[in-house]
């Protein structure tokens, strides 16, 4: 059984990574780099959605972890 707080910490970190990719996509001057950063951001975003779903499940399964 994974501990919900670990999953939440990891998801928060991923959100930060998404934000950094998004920022770099905006600030880079090379079009190739811009596109690559943008695609990376989208992939990370999908992963975050999966994780959010999992967090929702975990909170329902184990109400004692809610809000951690």
């Amino acid at each position: 059984m994974t501990v919900a707080s670990d999953v939440k910490t990891c998801t928060a970190g991923l959100k930060h990574a998404e934000a950094v990719f998004s920022k770099m996509a905006l600030l880079s001057s090379d079009p190739d780099a811009q596109q690559l950063f943008h695609e990376s951001m989208l992939t990370i975003h999908e992963v975050i959605e999966q994780m959010n779903k999992r967090i929702f499940e975990l909170e329902n399964e184990e109400p004692q972890y809610e809000g951690f």
Partner: peptide, 16 residues
């Protein structure tokens, strides 16, 4: 799948 996705991102973005 998530691990594989992140690893793919690492591979692509590493040079940058």
């Amino acid at each position: 799948k998530n691990a594989a996705d992140i690893n793919k991102v690492i591979q692509q973005a590493k040079p940058y």
